[in-house]
Nucleic acid binder design. Structure first.
Lengths: 268, 268
DNA sequence: CCTCTTATGTTCGCAATCTAACAAAGCCCC
DNA sequence: GGGGCTTTGTTAGATTGCGAACATAAGAGG
């Protein structure tokens, strides 16, 4: 556990990987559009008038692998609504040890959880290249303060995020590395367009806060059991329900909360 | 780690302990009063007109040790604003393993983090007997939807709670048991009226999700180092800054976030 | 096709924590 | 002031994951 661990990945591996991940680009490159925003479920859940009022502030951006949307202690000028990208909220300890606090994809928003806090208490790193909409945090704050459907929606999203973080805390203490790996894969899968994940074992180890060798061992076992196959930075999930069974309750509980969020949202 | 662990504590130890903890009762028993509500910092931070509109719905209640304000999967009809009481958000796994997700005292509110979710994703248990104000969740929801200072305040509180949960996840993976114990003691201390905590090592072990023997060992070491003294369900903190130094960054980061919450709140 | 980088596989010993069983106090209440 | 329950102390062996060092292989780019 040394300080070079994340840096090495961040500054060296990350940009290179970003160039490689062509799979995540949409078939036809999207433009800023009303329909485009609907690819983010949180935006899609807003009443049409609210979304329209936000629309002028939204900007479609590419989110390359490894990009830091904000870092620990830094300012959070923008919030991001991922569409095809996946973003990790990561905490890096002073000694270099890392832990993934939460993961955000097309179901959520990055930065609003830290609303009004001027400084981030963790960093946000793009884990899977893709697209997302961003807007100045101040505009979202203004919209929040105007009331309507937005405040309640964000509060509800926070509830689901809470569940995810809570299960991270629980699983971090009481799950085996294999279980954690299963859950991590499932969380990505839920936010990915395919059953193929472009990620190295080293990256996974950083996210889970374990050694790379432990991931090698765990992944090997999952492959032997026919749940996944992998080769050099590429994991394919073969048996989703098998993973779910192995992951145990942590995944299930958090997933249930997200599903409920969407159901509740649909009622609006 | 068996299923009887929490139950034994809950149903048997808890009521007994509650009867014992006389220290936490206020010198003169408070009545529902405007000034009483100010003992909760979140309520105190509300503009006078907002607080007055909530006031009629607030009810002063005693919160005896061990009382479950809500349980996993259960309904959350009330939100609670502790004044002298301390409440743990606990998750109990199917196999009986436990983890404390967060702790709430006079600085916060229990139940609102799970706003609009009809089912709780963890249980809330009174850890230190005392008082608190409660109100029907629906009334708070109504007030939230009316806008004004309340939505922003709750959002800000969520930010601080996020920081605490995040550090729980981080520390759960990367701290020694002794460090976790230090941090846990400090978190209680911040919400307690004195430097004496009424809690058994067994209770602590349940909160931290470790074995009781590990707490015995860790507490013994802290006592040898002159940081605390203890005897049968009673821990006295002797050297707060010593504990902080030992606890490491997790405590510091979360504390900073709460301090900022209060500063921001004071600006309102 | 060859090379060089990066990703994955493997090993050994070590430290922390857990499981399990039992011993010794301390404190409440009769 | 003594019985009985609760809390704390102690030990021994098993397991999981860590640290470090190195071996192998896959694929990108020349």
């Amino acid at each position: 556990m040394n300080n070079t661990q994340l840096n090495a990945t961040d500054k060296t591996t990350a940009p290179r990987m970003a160039l490689k991940s062509k799979e995540f680009k949409l078939a036809s490159r999207p433009v800023v559009s009303y329909s485009g925003t609907l690819q983010n479920e949180l935006l899609a859940a807003l009443p049409r008038d609210v979304l329209e009022s936000l629309f002028e502030h939204l900007e479609l951006v590419t989110l390359p692998f490894g990009k830091e949307l904000f870092e620990f202690g830094g300012a959070m000028d923008y919030v991001h609504f991922p569409t095809t990208a996946i973003v990790s909220l990561l905490y890096v300890m002073e000694d270099g040890a890392t832990t993934e606090i939460a993961v955000v994809g097309h179901e959520g928003v990055v930065g609003v959880s830290l609303f009004e806090g001027e400084r981030a208490m963790c960093s946000a790193v793009v884990q899977a290249a893709g697209y997302g909409y961003r807007m100045k945090a101040q505009h979202l704050r203004d919209a929040f303060n105007q009331g309507g459907a937005l405040p309640a929606l964000l509060m509800r999203y926070n509830t689901a995020l809470f569940a995810q973080m809570a299960q991270n805390a629980v699983g971090g203490r009481h799950s085996s590395i294999e279980q954690k790996l299963c859950r991590w894969l499932l969380d990505r899968l839920d936010r990915s367009p395919s059953n193929e994940l472009k990620v190295t074992q080293e990256m996974i180890s950083i996210m889970l806060g374990v050694r790379r060798e432990s991931i090698t061992a765990a992944a090997g076992k999952l492959q032997d059991d026919g749940l996944i196959t992998y080769r050099r930075g590429n994991i394919t999930v073969l048996d989703r329900s098998g993973l779910e069974a192995y992951a145990g309750e942590c995944y299930k509980v958090a997933k249930t909360e997200y599903d409920r969020l969407l159901v509740d949202v649909a009622r609006c």
